[in-house]
Amino acid sequence: MELPIRLSKESREPIYHQIEEQIKALIAGGQLPAGTSLPSIRVLSKELEISVITTRRAYQNLEYQGFIRTTQGKGTFVAEIEASKKEEVTVSAVYHAIEKAVETALRHDYTLEQIEVVFQEIIASLKKKGGHNNDGKMD
């Protein structure tokens, strides 16, 4: 199957790490249930327009951390993972997203205090609207 992965080539985050994190998020979010067959390293490399060296690195890390497993001759599949591990991925994704937002503000010479104000304002306006959208995604 084709994976909804989008790489940001401009990002400082290495490509293999972006792939890793996005696949983890898809697994933790339930979009890729255990047993789902993943594209081969070569197929994913073509789709993402990167070398197999990079894709292999992402798959190896995911396998090492227990998110996927490779069966000789059969391919690569999503592994069974514990609920606590899924939770961990979700929490780290949220922290990561907010960290990135703060970094953007800092790059624009905002002080931490100013950022806090912006943050409070956004929260307040969401509360006024009666909460957030159902899937909680801003983007």
């Binding site: 080539k9 490509i15 990167i50 070398s51 060296i53 990079t54």
Partner: peptide, 8 residues
């Protein structure tokens, strides 16, 4: 060159 060595 490895491709990402260039594009990066």
């Amino acid at each position: 060159f490895e491709k990402e060595e260039l594009t990066g």
